[in-house]
Design a protein around this nucleic acid. Structure first.
Lengths: 224, 224
DNA sequence: TCTGTCGCTGAGAGCGCGCTGAGAAGACTG
DNA sequence: CAGTCTTCTCAGCGCGCTCTCAGCGACAGA
């Protein structure tokens, strides 16, 4: 889930980035309207968080231009408390939801998820593959009822593989979605696949995380 | 404990916010009925304080609509002394309690706590984790029968962790619910976790408050 | 069997996260 | 106003996580 946050105030931007990353989002920042518009056009985001008061180009105008270009990425607008702007205008211009500053962080996340759910169809709360389970909300992994401790990176990798279970996933795709880059050495994926195997497969005598030589990896839906 | 206060009179709203924050609640304000309805729908509050006379949409209607949507958040209604409205109507519409202005601040807090306690099905009066106990009403913490002195902030933090025991709770969530902000330095959470550990864990040779590196903290349900 | 490529793994370096002590600022009390 | 308590900031430090690298084994094609 890729999120673009367009917010000029550094402190707020950094806080949002930290928080949303902790929730498992891949977060990019833009610090003014022009930059935000450019990023939204080319970035392939699942949702955009857009402040209204921005240098160079207001959030209103970013939203208006995107919609004029038939770009329908979900947009959540942020506004100052009782500014000159009326939030209703934002909705008229094609935003999907809005929040008034100061807003609650929990509410922000809930609304983001609601926006994502609106088109993406509902996601199951717990991801399963045989007797292997991962709960993204509780950040819990179990096999045969035994809890397994994973580092953040290992957890993100397993979550991604589970969401695409039974598919062959290339290292490039994994780098793109789990590392949020694509020009790094793919060896890091091999290393982390190794770490995962030692935690979710080896101790249980299983083989859920399979190598497809020359193509990538597949996580067996029956748990190996 | 998150409270939503829907009150158009600025002075009163600000006073309630200050006062309830001092009691350890996280307080959000809404200044008219529309805003209040919007916030109550999406905000994940533990209780709502709702004035009746509001611009744009009356408290009656806010309450009625929430209940029509099967939203059962506890609602405490406020009314002017001898207005045209009859408080009994409020209760008929699904409010849980009411107060007539001018009301005593102490009474308001007492009623709020009563409402929170009433949800006793999901919210037991005393929160437990192994031999560690916290009584929100009496503001008391014990371990092995020994009383433990906590500052208000420490108490609020422990209460929140206990309400979500066994879950991994991120620093962002903690900041949101205990500090009522999320764009502050997360280090303050680390500091207070440290304070708590020195009071509830270290003296008893326990380890209930666990770090989940890169994700947050977890309070072990068995008391560590 | 030989050879080149691909993937796995152990070792280790770097760094960022989380913990802590010190102390400043503010609230409260006598 | 002094003394105490509480809250929060800051800087330093240690360790766990992340990632790189080199060596080696597995595999496929000739």
């Amino acid at each position: 889930m890729r999120v673009l946050v367009v917010e000029d105030e550094r402190r707020m931007a950094a806080a949002l980035q930290r928080g949303l990353q902790a929730e498992g989002f891949a977060v990019d920042l833009a610090h003014d309207g022009e930059e935000g518009l450019h990023a939204a056009r080319h970035g392939d985001y699942d949702v955009v968080v857009l402040d209204i008061m921005l240098p160079r180009l207001s959030g209103y105008n970013v939203c208006k231009r995107l919609r004029a270009e038939e770009n329908w990425v979900p947009i959540l607008m942020l506004s100052a408390k009782d500014g000159e702007y009326d939030m209703a205008d934002g909705l008229d211009l094609g935003a999907d939801d809005y929040l008034t500053k100061p807003f609650s962080y929990v509410v922000l996340v809930a609304r983001l998820r609601a926006l994502l759910r609106r088109d993406a169809g509902r996601r199951p709360a717990v991801l399963l593959a045989g007797d292997l389970s991962l709960d993204p909300a509780r950040r819990r992994v179990e096999r045969d009822g035994a809890a397994i401790e994973l580092t953040p990176r290992e957890f993100a990798l397993l979550e991604y593989l589970l969401r695409r279970r039974d598919e062959v996933v290339s290292k490039s795709e994994i780098l793109e979605h789990v590392w949020d880059t694509f020009d790094t050495d793919p060896n890091v994926v091999e290393v982390y696949v190794g770490y995962l195997r030692r935690k979710i497969d080896a101790p249980f005598g299983r083989n859920a995380l399979q190598t497809v030589r020359g193509a990538g990896y597949r996580l067996a839906g029956d748990g190996g």
